[in-house]
Amino acid sequence: MTAMDEHLLEVDDLRVEFGRGRGTASVLNGVSCHVDEGETLAVLGESGSGKSVTAQTIMGILDTPPGRITGGAVRFRGEELLGADEERRRLLRGESMAMIFQDALSALNPVYSVGFQIAEQFRFRRGMSRRDAMVRAAEMLDLVRIPNAKQRVKEYPHQFSGGMRQRAMIAMALALDPELLIADEPATALDVTVQAQIMELLDELRRERGTGLVLITHDLGVVAEVADRIAVMYAGRIVEHADAATLYARPGHPYTRGLMDSVPRVDDAGVGGAGAVLRPIPGLPPSLSAIPHGCPFHPRCAYAQDVCTDEVPPLREVGAPDHRAACHFAEQFVAEGPDRPATQDVVSG
């Protein structure tokens, strides 16, 4: 067992840039987070927030160039990964950490059967015979609740439906029983009924196997259902971090609050209910090659003051333990709760 303060995965002040010269895009600007065994950390963000780059950097599959890691550390059970050689990282990938992608169709090779692709890992990493590996592959398909796994193991990716392919990819990721699973928008491309099945499956497998799960997503609904802790990203920074209940009950960052006010909901609760006016965040996310001075959110923030344009607010503890927000006025937001409009025009009509 590791020491108490040693996490399964710890990301510390990670910085990544793309390109060089005047057009340099600062994609990650000091991202810190951690995951423990059996827990789900959701990384929530819109496109361009840096959530996928975070996942790729942790896995060591970031394309460099154009990407460039300019600082920080990624520690897996205390072992620093960014400095490790490729041999060691390759060993860890699959054995200790695995990744699920959004697009299962392009993640599976169309010319090999699904079973063959899962079995490959058993053959090359565990030295199993071809036959034994196929038996294990069928077991894995069964584990991800694919009916008739024994028959379907010989089928090709195009013969699987979208939901099935996603299950097959989960089976492949879990084949070597990794301790950490990173899921990058695992259900975004799927229909809502299938999406619910996949999220349920991931949640169950995590609980059964004690896997640490990093869930990268933009969907506030999915996050609310499965996450233990949530990190909200904006312009390459984590702007808020809290356990799920706290974050939804008392968002401390106006961006988090704006996101929640932007989602039209199916149920009665919340601002997005029938007939209500959505309260969108005005403007657009900043270009990563020209992140605004001070708080990166200030041009879109209804509460921005002079201090916001001058100083970058640090991610600091606000109120509850482990609730951190990067806003100069976070305490006030936390005290007010979420039911106050985030933009003022709604109040004035």
Binding site: P282, G283, L284, A302, Y303, A304, Q305, Q332, E336, D345
Partner: peptide, 21 residues
């Protein structure tokens, strides 16, 4: 916090992101 700057309406509030073009 009620005396903060008035918010822009979403319509017509898009910053000039293409200004550098």
């Amino acid at each position: 916090m009620t005396d903060t700057a008035p918010a822009l309406r979403a319509r017509g509030a898009e910053p000039d992101e293409a200004a550098a073009v």
